[in-house]
Design a protein around this nucleic acid. Structure first.
Lengths: 346, 346
DNA sequence: CGTTAGCACTCGGAAGCGATGAGTGCTAAG
DNA sequence: CTTAGCACTCATCGCTTCCGAGTGCTAACG
């Protein structure tokens, strides 16, 4: 596909994309020659632009307007034209400043990261907390709420606290529950949740051989407790920031985006996908397969600790997004968050 | 003040407010006579309207438009003209339907309440979780994160889990921390946080007399742990709902509101105020003293359990809000939430 | 043969303009 | 005190016009 475009066409496409990112207004042939002295006349540029349009990289909103990049255009730009620079140290400092706060919980730090992303990029920041499955066990606690209902509290090695309510037929007294907690805390410490799940299944299979009532109950409870996926919460920060973008003058479009923000499960799916890949990922417009965020792009990166904790963060903005600026910011923030998860917990 | 208006004026003001709530368009003298047969001619109504305007209950946006209620107008309407009906059982059912979900944590239930408020009112729902200070102690747990940093987990009697990170000079081993946890769990069980704080202060004062090292450390830790206000989280649900309201055609106004939603501490302050009162509270426009939510009204009610837990929930919408419908919804939802807090935990 | 100048054409958006009509305040009669 | 009548105001709507940015095409140029 990249053979399709010769050097000149590329430079012109690049000019159009960059100018459009800057101005949010359709770019005409004249504007291209004016701002980038390519040694070409507007007429020549026009010919090239007609070709680019034919190939689907740009479109014109109406006859007498300039051209605007299509998704394909942005994609080509991002893949082959764009070179992402390093963050200058000034911006690095600016990001780091945000993290100089002590005594925060992991959750707060993650939320803070979302705010940073939003503030620096001037779009909207998103952070997905680590999936429970991807964390390492540190501590579990059972508290009896009422007959048949138990509150379970998990703590992961990185210090994230999660809780859920489970219903069970086993009628256990609080002292018995404490025994079970103690037992599990000893035997499961340091294992990943996935390992634990496997272990439980394995031991349950040998259950007939288990005469230890406590053990069998402990297994039953912990299976129940870990049954479904926990976590994967999404923080959306600075949603109002995105309203400054001229594309959201359009009321309808804005409503749709905010609806999407409220349906967080949608974002969870999307962010989950990007968790499989390494490095910075970029979804442009409908590539994300969610019509709700039509015309928007999403730039994500994973953060992780050597303990296996893994989550995703990123920025949502209009497709007309300042990729060259946002990409390194997302990248750097993800690294910083990883580092914090690593260091702060020693 | 209510002497100011005779019966006829009141009925006309009522008509204007109600019609305006319904149509969102300025109400003219003719419209009043047409929709409410008061046995008066438009000319008479005009005279009355001129008086009402003079007194500040209504204004006209421009010469040739009808009249629109002022904040004073809404306030008078709410205070003396409005009679709130009971919820019909159909709506009650509709609300209750939302709560038929099992196995939810208290936090999720509260969030759900916000969604209900939003869905039923078609404005935006807000819920403030109980302030930590207003809960009853159930359980505490200390986990060591790294040198000098401890994770503290609290559970309230209603099953709400909160955690924070504290920094301490005391270097304690995990077993010691467990001892302390156990000690505190035994001695503090069933006390309200406020009682506990008082107790700690009292016992600290007698500290010289304490030779029990464990006890003294336990006191120190728990004081640190409870030092500042926890909780008071605000959930905002259905923010996008409010965008359907014609007043938010105005981009600027909308931005301001969404900015306000992001500054949750602002809402915390506001909701805190209403926590002092009993029953349904109504803030109209600038009465709330927050310019950010200019032109908006807030209807709140407290929920509580006999255990002393207490929080606030409500609805935010434009001042042109359907008070007669929303007030009973907020009231009923608060009761329902109280009941759930009470029952579910047996 | 690629490039460029010239030109006619398109079309969205702003500006101007008058008609419309809802609504008002005032006055005078009932 | 109420109301009918009337002159007046002014936002809104639809219409036309104008402007200019931008295009595609053609023909000339190097």
């Amino acid at each position: 596909m990249s053979d399709e475009l010769n050097e000149r066409s590329r430079r012109i496409l690049e000019a159009i994309v960059e100018d459009y990112i800057g101005t949010a207004e359709p770019i005409g042939s004249r504007a291209v020659t004016r701002r980038h002295h390519l040694g070409l006349s507007p007429a020549t540029v026009r010919n090239v632009m007609a070709d680019l349009e034919e190939m689907g990289y740009i479109v014109s909103p109406h006859t007498s307007a300039g051209r605007v990049p299509t998704e394909k255009g942005y994609r080509f730009y991002v893949d082959t034209l764009l070179q992402v620079g390093q963050l200058d140290s000034q911006q690095k400092n600016r990001i780091e400043q945000y993290y100089r706060i002590d005594g925060l919980r992991v959750e707060e730090r993650l939320r803070e990261a979302g705010k940073v992303l939003s503030a620096i990029s001037s779009y909207t920041g998103v952070v997905m907390t680590p999936r429970f499955n991807c964390t390492v066990f540190r501590h579990i606690e059972f508290l009896k709420l009422s007959q048949g209902r138990l509150l379970v509290i998990f703590v992961s090695r990185s210090g994230m606290v999660q809780n859920k309510v489970i219903e069970t037929d086993l009628s256990l007294s609080q002292p018995e529950l404490e025994q079970i907690s103690n037992y599990l805390n000893q035997t499961l410490s340091g294992l990943s949740i996935q390992e634990i799940k496997a272990k439980i299944v394995r031991e349950m299979a040998e259950e007939k051989a288990i005469y230890d009532k406590l053990l069998s109950r402990a297994l039953e409870l912990s299976q129940e407790a870990m049954s479904d996926e926990l976590g994967g919460q999404v923080y959306i920060e600075g949603a109002s920031n995105i309203l400054e973008q001229p594309e959201f003058k359009d009321l309808e479009r804005m409503k749709r985006l905010f609806r999407a923000f409220e349906q967080k499960n949608l974002l969870v799916e999307l962010l989950d996908k990007s968790q499989l890949a390494r490095g910075v990922q970029i979804f442009i417009g409908s590539e994300s397969e969610y019509r709700e965020i039509e015309g928007c792009s999403l730039i994500t990166a994973n953060y992780s600790s050597s303990r296996g904790t893994i989550g995703t963060l990123g920025v949502i903005g209009p497709s007309r997004m300042n990729y060259s600026q946002v990409i390194p910011v997302v990248d750097y923030t993800a690294r910083l968050v990883s580092q914090i998860l690593e260091n702060e917990l020693e």
